[in-house]
Amino acid sequence: MANITLGGNPIETTGELPASGSKAPNFKLTATDLSSKSNSDYAGSRLVLNIFPSIDTGTCAQSVRTFNEKASALDNTKVLCISKDLPFALARFCGAEGLDNVESLSDFKTGDFGKDYGLTFKTGPLESLLSRCIVVIDTDGTILHTEQVSEIKDEPNYESALASLA
């Protein structure tokens, strides 16, 4: 399990992120139109998974805005913003912000994504939500880069994630 903090207070996750070089676990998530999306829907594309606790927090919202800005310059790459927020909240936020270079997906139905990727909070006030992580996946499903953000209030290292696609 990863040991991370919220305001300096320790919080644990259910596991560890998959290792770079390994195959990405399959996932099934809910899109903002309530359709199901899985790895196979993105076959042949590189993926940046921007994973966070809730779109209704400043840091999470900023990560979606930042990746939306940077995504338009990425070749054959889709940025998937993933949380346990209801799809309606994700659609509301992206619509209000005019964000159309990222795709929002929710793990609210089963929580299997968080379990399979080892990033669900196991303890602390955000227990059962997803921790702030980045996972970059190549066109063949191989993980190129991961980052478990050690302090929940901090933004991910955008440059490091995007550099893994070079």
Rank of each mutant, 00 (worst) to 15 (best):
M1I: 14
M1C: 07
I4Q: 04
L6F: 14
I11L: 12
P18N: 08
A19G: 12
T30D: 11
A31K: 11
T32C: 09
L34D: 10
L34K: 10
L34M: 14
S35R: 15
S36W: 07
S36G: 06
K37I: 04
S38P: 01
S40C: 13
S45W: 05
L49D: 01
I51E: 00
F52M: 12
P53C: 07
I55G: 05
T57G: 08
T57A: 10
C60Q: 12
T66H: 07
F67I: 00
N68I: 07
E69H: 11
E69S: 14
K70L: 04
K70H: 09
A71D: 06
S72Y: 13
S72Q: 13
N76I: 06
N76S: 12
T77V: 11
K78Q: 15
V79S: 02
C81T: 15
I82Q: 03
S83G: 01
F88S: 13
L90P: 02
E97K: 15
V102K: 00
E103V: 13
S106C: 02
S106P: 03
K109A: 06
T110G: 02
G114Q: 01
G114T: 07
G118I: 02
L119E: 07
F121H: 04
G124V: 00
G124L: 00
P125C: 05
E127W: 09
L129C: 08
L130I: 06
S131T: 00
I134C: 11
V135T: 03
T139Y: 02
T139V: 13
D140T: 12
T142S: 14
I143K: 04
I143H: 04
L144Y: 06
V149T: 06
S150F: 11
D154L: 13
E155Q: 13
Y158M: 07
E159F: 04
L162K: 01
L165Y: 02
